[in-house]
Amino acid sequence: MAAVSATVILLIGVGVPVSIVAPVPQARAEVAQEQQRATDPAAIRLPSFGSSAVGVVGMPGVLAKRGPQAPRQMASITKVITMLVVLEKRPLAAGEDGPTITLGQRDVGYLDQVIAANGSWQPVQAGWRVSQRAAIETTMIPSANNYAETLAVWAYGSVPAYLDAARAFLKANGLDDTTVVDTNGLSSGDRSTPTDLVDLGRIALANPVLAATVRMATADEPNVGALENTNQLLGTDGIDGLKTGTYDTGANLLFSATRRVGDRTVRIVGVVLGARDHPTLDARVPAVVDSVVAGYHDLALAKPGQVFATYETRWGGVGRAVAAKAVSRVVWSRARVVRKASVDPITGGRKGERVGEVTYSVDGSTVVVPLVLDRDVLAAPVWWRLTHPLR
Rank of each mutant, 00 (worst) to 15 (best):
L378V: 09
A323C: 08
A323D: 01
G349C: 06
L371T: 12
L233S: 01
G67P: 08
V338W: 11
L151E: 00
L197N: 08
P99V: 09
N231I: 01
R202N: 02
Q105V: 13
I44T: 10
L103C: 10
T249I: 10
G58L: 10
R276N: 14
T218W: 09
E88L: 05
R314A: 04
N173Y: 13
Q306E: 12
D263W: 06
D248E: 09
G356F: 00
E149H: 10
G245H: 01
R284L: 12
D112H: 11
A379T: 14
V214M: 00
E34T: 14
D344Q: 08
W128V: 06
T7A: 08
A302G: 01
V331S: 06
Y110W: 15
V124L: 07
K89P: 12
W383R: 15
S342D: 04
V269M: 03
D263P: 15
Y110N: 12
V130D: 01
E353R: 04
D107S: 14
P194Q: 09
N173Q: 12
R320A: 08
S291A: 11
M59E: 12
N229I: 04
D376N: 14
N207Q: 07
V285W: 06
G348L: 03
E357H: 06
I115Q: 05
I12A: 15
L371G: 06
E221P: 00
P194W: 07
E34D: 13
V16R: 05
D176H: 13
K243P: 10
V382D: 03
K340Y: 10
V266C: 04
D374N: 11
R267T: 04
L301D: 03
V289I: 09
V124M: 03
G67I: 10
V331F: 05
K243I: 00
Y296V: 13
T359Y: 11
R276S: 04
R260F: 14
V307P: 05
V57L: 09
A148G: 01
A287Y: 07
V209D: 00
A144W: 06
V261L: 03
S192I: 04
